[in-house]
């Protein structure tokens, strides 16, 4: 389990992380979203032992990460721009990882090399950005980590490889109970992959919820009433997060159980009523607006 308690990280005068609390259960896939500069990468660097916390703690299974070899042997961090040694190949990078990670699994490496379309002996520096990322992921996954920290991992990957990677990671989670923490600014990418999503903004965690919980608790409804119903009446009857009118068509984002919302709407005698799916992004925007944040500014 990854536990972050009251974590603060400063860069000179600026605070990159401010009193962050986060808990990631073992075997979960957790997405970290937020705008640029929100502190996602900084949090991953603290969790991977690259940065030393200024205040608070970052611990894995109760042990601090920084300068803790026992923890770091079970954890791999794939940064947003992986860098390789001069002249490195996939094979030589794997050898490098194998030298430092005691559980490095060469069989898994061979298997992954068969899955991802990469030439083992080709110089990584001559590969495309997406292929370089694949090389880093193959090396990392072959180390059989208990904790995988990924920073903007889907950037530069084509849709096929993205799907493949998600499947490989999901298998690792299912088979070995690997814990994954993914930082991204792309909510749609995480929507169908993560169990939990945390939203970071200006160095703090604004929100941390199960994806299902987010989806189930919010609804978008398009409705046309036979008789005009005022905004006040709607807000009084329903838990309205947002409300828009286009002619007679009223678009509502509601919080709460679907059945209860349907009953209350039925009481207002609509001539047309349709429940539409909400994207994760819309759920986030709505949630954040409800707690007083200017969502448009937070999620660029």
């Amino acid at each position: 389990m990854i536990e972050v308690r009251d974590l603060t990280k400063r860069f000179g005068e600026a605070r990159a992380l401010s009193h962050v609390d986060l808990c990631v259960e073992t075997g979960r896939i957790v997405g970290l979203v937020g705008s640029n500069g929100a502190g996602k990468s900084t949090l991953l660097r603290v969790l991977s032992g690259v940065y030393r916390p200024d205040e608070g703690t970052a611990a894995v299974d109760g042990a601090p990460v920084y300068e803790n070899v026992a923890v770091k042997e079970r954890m791999i961090f794939v940064p947003d721009s992986p860098v390789f040694e001069a002249g490195a190949t996939l094979r030589s990078t794997a050898r490098l990882y194998a030298a430092f990670y005691p559980r490095y699994d060469w069989k898994k490496y061979e298997k992954l090399c068969g899955v991802f379309p990469l030439a083992e002996k080709k110089r990584i520096s001559t590969m495309s950005k997406g292929m370089q990322r694949q090389a880093a992921l193959i090396s990392a996954l072959s180390a059989a980590p208990d904790y995988l920290l990924l920073d903007e991992v889907f950037d530069g990957l084509d849709p096929v490889i993205r799907r493949l990677l998600k499947r490989v990671i999901a298998n690792e989670v299912a088979e070995r109970g690997m814990t994954v923490l993914i930082a991204s600014h792309n909510l749609r990418e995480l929507e169908d992959f993560c169990d939990t999503v945390g939203l970071l903004h200006e160095g703090g965690v604004l929100l941390e919820k199960e994806i299902d919980e987010l989806h189930l608790g919010m609804h978008r409804v398009q409705v046309v009433f036979a008789q005009p119903v005022s905004d006040e009446a709607l807000r009084a009857a329903l838990d309205v997060v947002s409300l828009e009118r286009t002619g007679t068509l009223v678009t509502l984002v509601l919080r709460g159980e679907r059945e209860a919302a349907e009953e209350k709407l039925a009481a207002l005698r609509p001539v047309f009523c349709e429940f539409l799916p909400l994207s994760l992004e819309e759920v986030f925007i709505s949630e954040m607006e409800s707690v007083g944040y200017d969502a448009a500014r937070v999620l660029e």
Binding site: R45, S48, G49, V50, E67, K72, M75, D80, V83, F100
Partner: peptide, 16 residues
Amino acid sequence: FHRARVDGVHSLPVTR
């Protein structure tokens, strides 16, 4: 002096 390289080296299970 190269952030990405620091990420790679300092996240390895090796002490300073």
